[in-house]
């Protein structure tokens, strides 16, 4: 029983790392209807920035702050150079634009900062601690707490501030938002900046775990099943989706793995997502449009 709980909790905690990546997608998708393929590249770019600045001698908090500023500048540049000229185009056009963008950002990041694997030490050791009878990874706990705090801050931002209400207004009805004077370009800038900062947090946590390197940008592929399960339009869904994927992966690997010859983790999330597509194509928390005829 303890072993089962350990597996489950380990999976849930690891799942928060997926949620973090997925939240970046949800933010941009909600506000601009774009599936931002470049989220992974932004995550890599942010983490590389932070590590490079740290290597250049900046203390860690300063490097993080500088990386946040860089992500804001990047968001402004993307809004001006990519989104604004393409406003009103079809979704597939915008998707292709972000696909192109992801290669540009990746190339730029590696060109400027090098392609070798960099170590990132957040000062938290990845050793298990014992709670009751159960062993839990200290790093996973830290990552989950960070994700929790981030979600709390985002919830406050969305529900309590004028910017948040404007963001939700744009997500609900872009035209109506425009007609009452909400500046769509400003909203996009803010959303992309926030998604960049979320990407930085996710990039640092993933980077600390597996090294800051090109493969970081591939965590987007892990976010896809999370989004399909949780829904593209809900931050709550991204969290639930991440937890489900994390837990299911861990349990499947441990219990079903031996029967199937192991190595289930890389594909099990997609299998799960496919099953969800059959029964709930909008995801668990996706766009339950409130409508009254």
């Amino acid at each position: 029983m303890n072993f089962f709980l350990e597996t489950l909790i380990g999976g849930l905690l690891a799942g928060t790392m997926y949620s973090l990546v997925a939240i970046g997608f949800v933010l941009i998708y909600k506000a601009s209807g774009v599936f931002n393929f470049a989220q992974g590249a932004m995550l890599l770019f942010a983490a590389l920035n932070c590590v490079s600045l740290q290597e250049a001698g900046l203390p860690f908090p300063a490097a993080v702050l500088a990386s946040v500023s860089i992500m804001i500048v990047l968001a402004l540049a993307i809004e001006r150079a990519v989104l604004r000229p393409l406003v009103g185009r079809s979704q597939i056009t915008l998707f292709m634009a972000t696909l192109g963008l992801s290669f540009i950002i990746e190339g730029l990041a590696q060109g400027l900062m090098g392609a070798e694997v960099r170590a990132l030490d957040l000062g938290i050791e990845d050793v298990p601690i014992t709670i009751g009878d159960i062993m839990v990874s200290q790093f996973d706990l830290f990552a989950a707490a960070t994700a929790g705090i981030l979600v709390l801050v985002l919830a406050l931002l969305f529900n309590k501030t004028r910017i948040g209400v404007s963001l939700r207004a744009v997500a609900d009805d872009t035209r109506a938002a425009l007609s009452i004077g909400i500046n769509l370009n400003r909203i996009w800038q803010i959303v992309w900046a926030v998604a960049g900062i979320v990407g930085l947090v996710a990039g640092l946590l993933w980077g600390a775990r597996q090294g800051v390197q090109f493969a970081l940008s591939l965590v987007v592929l892990k976010a896809l099943p999370v989004l399909i399960i949780g829904g593209f339009t809900s931050i709550g869904g991204a969290i639930a989706g991440g937890l489900i994927v994390g837990a299911a992966e861990n349990l499947a690997e441990v219990y079903a793995g031996p029967l199937l010859g192991g190595g289930i983790t890389p594909w099990f999330a997609y299998f799960l997502a496919l099953a969800f597509l059959y029964v709930r194509p909008a995801g668990l928390f996706g766009e339950r449009a409130i409508e009254r005829v």
């Binding site: 209400v165 404007s166 207004a169 997500a171 609900d172 009805d173 938002a177 009452i180 004077g181 449009a289």
Partner: peptide
């Protein structure tokens, strides 16, 4: 200000937040 055909309110926002959003500008 334009009130669009078909009552384009922000469905997920509360009635009061809808009104407040009009006052932001």
């Amino acid at each position: 200000v334009h009130v669009l055909e078909g009552r384009h309110v922000f469905p997920q926002l509360s009635v009061e937040d809808n009104l407040r959003s009009g006052g932001f500008l």
